[in-house]
């Protein structure tokens, strides 16, 4: 076979593989939406789930998901951003910095179920919170930290040195420069990164099963110490418990809702990115 022919076949194979990847994605999204969208009635979205009889909805799970994701971001973003600022602006090459970087990378590689075990003994047991939204959110925050640290550091490093120098030359202190010149210039990328992290938190379940639990309070409450089953956990739990005749219906609806939420997050990221591009172009 001539080299030309091999070249053709290889290119064709590679392109076909890329096509296969698209097909797989299309199949997953398509099947989830086709099976799940019909379930997403107003009633399904606004009524409570039930462990005993069919016909339940996911209103509490939606609320818990928003609550836990928001709370976990409230914990993780300040710490992650702070660490990102430290690594980008202060850290000098040396043992301590290597240690912090190694810790960040290691933390990023810890399987989420191990975070679940950790959260279970630290927050649920040792701290005596039991299954709680706070415990779930705190564990989720630690899981998300490495990602937020990474995107923060990258966003801060991407700010042109010019801008820092301009601020320092005006007699601003280093910290004033960080808050008034660097972070505002990095805000687009930071928002993209934070949205990414929120999207990940949205679909996370292994960390939450034994920290936030698999049940919801009886009444709508903002109590951080109440347990809070999220959508992703619910999707797993209705299958695992399999006590309902309409478990499949509920799972389909929950899966579709999760996918829609994820698509919304991706669109949000795209929007931030486009805004960022435009702003950069405007500064030309």
């Amino acid at each position: 076979m001539s080299a030309k022919r091999i070249d053709q076949i290889a290119r064709w194979t590679v392109t076909a593989a890329a096509g296969l990847i698209l097909l797989v994605l299309g199949y997953i999204l398509g099947s989830v939406l086709i099976n799940g969208l019909p379930v997403l009635s107003w009633h399904f979205l606004t009524s409570r789930s039930s462990n005993l009889e069919p016909g339940g909805g996911i209103s509490m799970q939606i609320f818990n998901t928003i609550y836990i994701v928001t709370l976990s971001m409230l914990i993780a973003v300040p710490i992650g951003l702070g660490a990102g600022v430290y690594l980008a602006e202060y850290a000098r090459p040396g043992r301590l910095t290597s240690l912090i970087r190694l810790a960040t990378e290691s933390l990023a590689s810890v399987p989420s179920i191990v975070f679940g075990l950790f959260g279970m003994i630290v927050f649920a047991n040792a701290a005596g919170l039991g299954f709680s939204r706070l415990g779930g959110a705190a564990t989720l925050a630690i899981l998300n930290l490495p990602l937020i640290v990474r995107v923060s550091e990258e966003a801060i490093r991407a700010v042109p040195a010019d801008l820092r120098h301009a601020s320092l030359a005006l007699g601003a202190t280093k910290e004033q420069t960080i808050f008034s010149a660097v972070l505002p210039a990095a805000v687009g990328r930071l928002a993209t990164g934070v949205t990414l992290a929120a999207g990940r938190a949205l679909g996370e379940s292994a960390v939450l099963i034994a920290t936030a639990g698999m049940s919801s309070p009886r009444y709508l409450t903002f109590d951080p110490l109440a347990s809070g089953e999220t959508l992703a956990v619910h999707l797993w739990a209705v299958n695992a418990e399999n006590s309902l005749s309409d478990a499949a219906r509920i799972a389909n609806g929950t899966a579709a809702f999760l996918i829609l939420a994820m698509l919304a997050v991706s669109l949000g990221i795209g929007w931030f990115a486009r805004r960022l591009d435009r702003r950069l172009a405007g500064q030309g």
Partner: peptide, 14 residues
């Protein structure tokens, strides 16, 4: 990116 964003329980469900 979408493939990366799909929650693992949804992968499990499919």
């Amino acid at each position: 990116e979408l493939l990366a964003g799909i929650p693992s329980v949804v992968y499990g469900w499919v």
